[in-house]
Nucleic acid binder design. Structure first.
Length: 1127
RNA sequence: GCCGGAGUGGCGGAAUGGUAUACGCGCGCGACUCAAAAUCGCGUCUCGCAAGGGAUGAGGGUUCGAGUCCCUCCUCCGGCACCA
């Protein structure tokens, strides 16, 4: 017998397998169940590292195992081929990113093949292949047509020198990685997908999935649904009253419900409101309507003029003719020409579509333009024209009813005496709201900085703070030190709607602009962050929640079905007469550690009660009352001594002893608790009851109670429990609001190497989808791949490519030049695997349905909240469009661990600790590398394992021992090994299913150790063992299998079956414990009953039990006997 | 900062709430050998001569019994929306 020559074996078998098409998956296999095993496809970075082996070769064990178990297995692979590195390489080397990418793919394919992986290469998918991205574009357009896609101004990283958008990765310490200039945040119009519409379903549908709970938890928290309240805080900074003139539109009238609502709201604030009925609303003429509008009011510096739709045109004409400027002009759904998006109007001839913009600007102190991005009548182009004409950016909103900008209009009008809407999950603490904080990007802050109201007295300062905050990323803002910063808006106060008190208003960057309403109320008494902030800026703290703790565990846990007895009690914190020490009590009959406490008798004075209890419980005679420690504290628990449920209302009091004079304590008291003196630093540790801890914190001025409790200082709500009060206060002062942390998915990228967004911009039709027949919109060739320098994508350089005809009106139009986020590519690739060559559809339902949903998806933990959530969303959107049959794409998900360098650090070129798998494979073989990676640690837990070059040889040695074991194979089966073999079959199978490959391999090693010791094993036993080995080390197993005389490939045989009867021996070893400590062991028959086990155990430790009283005996058959004895 | 996870010998790790340290590496001793390598055998948490005691990041709790469940804290890892 020759030695184990891995190089020869690993060259020979893959050829055979490929020749026989061993791993090509058929769409339908007779009598077999389908099993779809998916691994995240790699980015073609150019070189395979050990991490790739870990990602592909280890799950391959499961794929091979499932095949042997008779499953029809789909185990596909492809490349996530668009992305930043290709573009960077292209810029650096002046090389086409396509060439760079495709050559990397070719190289990596060969490397992946060398792993002995059983991938079905006939289904390979490459995302930068137009045959693939045609369908990425098509699917994107389905979402676009379903109204799930919109454009919105969003902040991006901006390098002012290069004039380009930077990825987060390209920003290093707030500087551009290329030119080192300071990166700023810039607002740009970006394509968004409405993933937030699916937030609830993405949360709810997690529940039934067979996913690890920590992944579900992460996604749930990422989506971050929270039920809270929105409450309005009016701002106070001037008492100016305005006259509002509201001009309705075509076919409109002052009787529209929204006008009634506005009028009522504005008049409540003391403003005057005029809503003239404009003549002939169905056949309007300009002269008539403008005259009527002019006649309706005096226009002066206190006038606010609102025009909606055609009213906007009238409003502009009115302003044109004024002699003095008005305060404010609001144009909603306005336009400056006669191009209507939906249909021509019969009034357009009676209007002159010319405006004297200079006059309009001169005659208004400020102008606001509102535009619904889905407006049916007004196109994006028209709004752009209006913006250009007036030199003002419009505010784009998504309206409830198209064309009417709805809520937003009201907000704009109210700005003149604005209210700040706050989002809170703790409406119950409203009475404790002592200040207001706005995010630096809050619209009112922007508004105030523009100086329109003369509200701010410290504009310069605020401006500076806001600028600084906006330049920083979110993580920097919340992580920079722990110190919170903020700045007061001088001259502006807000009114707490509950207390009616005026409170300070701050701008602080710990409040995020895009979460909730971008404004929070500060409740320093009951929120940790607010507390910190209030301390720093010396803001008032008002406590409105009395703590309530409800014991739910332990022997003093509330007994749910029993009565609750209410008692008032005193808690006495007592200080030593000379030292900085305090009296604490350690109870004996229950797990309670705290201060002196006792019930207040009827009619008894609280202070006196405390003095009495001190004497009774500690014996000290001369205590002096110093002060009360705030409000009551409540607790619900089961009193062990009184044997009833208690609802205690505690009054915390502070006493000092004058001297050490002390009576002997009664025997009764001594039996209840010990008196201990503790230093100030030891007390907090010692206390184990929240009500006691609160008393202590109050003494030290460190109280910050954020839990549930009972309301105080809250008018009619005082006495309510916090959960009831949340509802009641929300109903009275605000409304319920559900918010999510999840934000819409920004898919725009100003980059070359991505999927072109298949949209055309037309001056009259707005953004229009490219026709299906025109797909794919192929990436144009450009001279170089540097960004445009104007903020546009490099695609804008392909000038000819950009110029197209509008698919709708055939007029001149321009192509969208942004490309799609690569997460879009990877949101559906697993569908394409099921029908990768289809040119008519993204995948044929008949081919897709037998495989979906994916049975097991294995990948990195870093994808938990982004790729995994995006693809779940994408799939749900396709489900709603009827394009897929199931609402969830992945039945089971598993996060893999990561492999570190030999030094325990993350592998990276800069650290120089990158392990080259090719070199190890040459030296030790692919089977060794596969198996070592599987053996290194549990695959199904997120952890990290350093690659240990010494340990690899252990696995190599194991394979060499397997090779040599051939010598011991004989004709007759070895009876001594039979039971172990069956146990091993069971263990290996179960462990592979659970992806615990390390313990499966350990079981194989244990079997081989035993077989070597025996120096003989039967042919059948040997062949069973080889089958168990085959998924792990496919090459050597195949070679030995063939050497054993088998003709068919081992990978096409079936997995061995174990016999239940072979799993248990005749006797079992039982542990004997005394008081839970192991004191010996005894061998008993496997079927021994409890009595038999107990007496055997008693005999075994008879010496130790001598003279001891056995209180209890616990017998766990097959495991142990535990004698509980009196010490 | 927020969210999720981990912490067990010299190292990677094993352990349905039931005899902690399986399996592998390393190390020590021995066999084979002229010798070395390879291989095989034995040993290897710690204190103790022993009897026995102690140990799963720290501290506390629940339990007959805790590496495992609960609370507080420490350290490390992953994610935080344009790396993929």
């Amino acid at each position: 017998m020759k030695g184990y020559d891995h190089a020869k074996i690993e060259k020979k078998w893959p050829k055979e397998w490929q020749k026989n098409g061993l791993y090509e998956t058929s769409d339908k296999a007779k009598g077999k169940d389908n099993f779809y095993l998916l691994v995240e496809f790699p980015y073609p970075s150019g070189n395979l590292h050990v991490g790739h082996w870990y990602a592909f070769a280890v799950p391959d064990i499961l794929a091979r195992f499932q095949r042997m178990r008779g499953k029809n297995v789909l185990y596909p692979i492809g490349f996530d081929a668009f992305g930043l590195p290709a573009e960077n390489a292209a810029i650096k080397n002046k090389l086409n990113p396509r060439i760079w990418t495709l050559s990397n793919i070719e190289y990596m394919k060969n490397q992946i093949r060398s792993m002995g992986t059983s991938f079905d290469w006939s289904r390979e998918v490459v995302t930068c292949d137009p045959a693939y991205y045609k369908w990425t574009q098509w699917l994107f357009l389905q979402l676009f047509k379903a109204g799930l896609v919109y454009r919105k101004e969003t902040a991006v990283n901006w390098c002012p020198k290069d004039k380009t958008v930077l990825a987060n990765e390209q920003v290093v310490n707030g500087k551009c990685e290329r030119c080192d200039s300071e990166v700023v945040q810039k607002q740009m119009l970006q394509w968004n997908i409405k993933i937030t519409d699916y937030a609830d379903r993405l949360t709810e549908d997690l529940e039934p999935l067979d996913w690890p709970k920590e992944i579900k938890e992460s996604q749930k928290n990422w989506i971050g649904r929270s039920e809270g309240a929105e409450i309005d805080f009016p701002l106070v900074f001037n008492e100016k009253k305005y006259t509002y003139v509201i001009l309705h539109g075509f076919q409109g009238s002052p009787d529209r419900p929204r006008f009634h609502y506005w009028k009522a709201e504005l008049e409540k604030q003391g403003h005057k409101v005029v809503i003239p009925a404009l003549p002939n609303p169905d056949h309007p003429s300009e002269d008539e309507q403008v005259a009527a509008a002019l006649a309706a009011a005096d226009y002066d510096e206190n006038t606010v003029l609102f025009g909606g739709s055609l009213g906007a045109v009238i409003a502009m004409k009115v302003v044109e003719q004024l002699k003095n400027p008005i305060a404010h002009l609001v144009l909603a759904g306005g336009f400056v020409d006669r191009n209507f998006k939906d249909k021509p109007r019969n009034f357009d001839k009676r209007f002159i579509w010319k405006f004297d913009t200079a006059r309009i600007k001169k005659n208004t102190k400020s102008i606001t333009i509102l535009h619904d991005i889905h407006d049916t009548a007004i196109s994006e182009q028209q709004i752009t024209n209006l913006e250009k004409t007036l030199g003002i950016k419009a505010e784009r909103v998504v309206a409830e009813t198209p064309h009417f900008t709805g809520d937003k209009e009201m907000t704009v009008l109210m700005w003149l005496r604005p209210t700040i809407r706050v989002f809170t999950t703790r409406a119950d603490t409203l009475y404790g709201g002592t200040y207001l904080v706005l995010a630096p990007e809050h619209p009112w802050v922007t508004h105030a900085l523009e100086g329109k109201d003369d509200a701010l007295k410290n504009r310069g300062e605020v401006q500076e703070y806001v600028e600084k905050a906006k330049g920083r990323t979110e993580i920097e803002r919340s992580a920079e030190g722990k110190e919170k910063t903020g700045i007061r808006l001088a001259g502006v106060e807000a009114v707490n709607p509950a207390t009616g008190k005026e409170i300070a208003v701050y701008v602080a960057d710990y409040v995020l602009g895009h979460y909730g309403t971008g404004a929070v109320m500060g409740v320093p008494a009951h929120d940790a962050r607010d507390n910190e902030f209030a301390k720093k800026y010396k803001l008032p703290v008002v406590k409105v929640v009395q703590p309530l703790s409800i014991r739910t565990t332990g022997m003093d846990a509330l007994r749910p079905r029993e009565m609750l007895v209410e008692r008032d009690a005193v808690v006495a914190v007592i200080k030593h007469w000379a030292e900085d020490k305090f009296i604490c009590l350690q109870w004996k009959d229950q797990p309670m550690r705290g201060f002196v406490t006792g019930g207040i008798e009827k009619g008894e004075d609280v202070v006196e009660c405390g003095l009495r209890e001190i004497q009774e419980e500690t014996g000290y005679k001369n205590a002096k009352f110093i002060r009360a420690l705030g409000d009551k504290v409540h607790a619900q628990f089961y009193s062990v001594s009184k044997q009833e449920n208690r609802f205690g209302h505690y009054v915390p009091m502070y006493y000092e002893l004058k001297d050490g004079e002390r009576d002997e304590m009664s025997a009764e008291e001594r039996a209840l608790h010990d008196v201990v003196w503790l230093k100030r630093t030891e007390v907090r540790q010692f206390l184990n009851r929240p009500e006691m801890q609160v008393a202590w914190d109050r003494l030290n001025g460190t109280e910050n109670y954020t839990g549930e409790g009972i309301l105080a200082n809250s008018d009619a709500f005082t006495g309510m429990r916090t959960d009831e009060a949340r509802k009641a206060i929300t109903d009275t002062f605000g409304q319920i609001k559900i918010t999510y942390k999840l934000r819409d998915w920004i898919v725009s990228r100003q980059r070359y190497w991505g999927v072109p967004i298949p949209v055309v911009h037309c001056s009259s039709c707005g953004p229009v989808a490219v026709k299906d027949s025109e797909l794919p919109v192929k990436l144009p060739e450009v001279k170089d791949y540097l960004p445009e320098g104007s903020g546009k994508s490099p695609l804008a350089k392909a000038e000819k490519w950009v110029q197209v005809r509008c698919p709708q009106c055939k007029g001149k139009a321009e192509r969208e030049t942004d490309t799609l986020d690569t997460f879009v590519d990877s949101s559906w690739y697993f569908l394409r695997y099921t029908d990768s060559k289809n040119s008519k559809k993204f995948a044929d339902a008949k081919k897709m349905e037998p495989w979906m949903p994916v049975d097991l998806y294995s990948g990195g933990a870093e994808h938990t909240t982004m790729h995994l959530l995006y693809s779940r969303f994408w799939h749900k959107a396709l489900f709603d469009l009827g394009l897929v049959k199931e609402p969830e794409p992945y039945r089971r998900r598993m996060n893999r661990s990561i492999i570190l360098g030999p030094d325990g650090q993350k592998m990276s070129k800069s650290r120089g600790n990158v392990v080259d798998p090719d070199e190890v494979v040459r030296r030790l073989g692919a089977d060794t590398v596969r198996m070592y990676l599987a053996f290194i640690g549990p695959y199904n837990e997120v952890s990290s394992f350093p690659w240990n070059p010494d340990s690899v040889v252990g696995v190599r040695r194991f394979l060499e021992r397997v090779w040599r074991a051939q010598e011991h194979v004989g004709k007759t089966e070895n009876v001594a090994l039979e039971n172990l073999l069956h146990k091993t079959i069971k263990k290996v199978g179960e462990d592979i299913t659970a992806m615990k490959f390390n313990t499966a391999i350990s079981a194989l090693m244990i079997f081989l150790n035993a077989a070597e010791k025996e120096r003989s094993l039967g042919k059948k036993q040997w062949e069973s063992f080889l089958k168990l080995l085959a998924p792990f080390a496919p090459h050597i197993a195949e070679e030995l299998w063939a050497a054993s005389g088998q003709k068919k490939s081992i990978h096409q045989t079936t997995w061995p079956v174990y016999e239940e009867s072979r799993l248990v021996g005749e006797t079992v070893k039982i542990a004997i414990q005394i008081n839970g400590k192991t004191r010996g062991g005894v061998e008993v028959p496997a079927d021994a009953d409890k009595g038999g086990i107990e007496s055997a155990g008693r005999d075994a430790v008879a010496v130790r039990l001598e003279g001891k009283k056995i209180l209890r005996t616990i017998v766990v058959p097959g495991r142990l006997v535990n004698f509980v004895v009196q010490e």
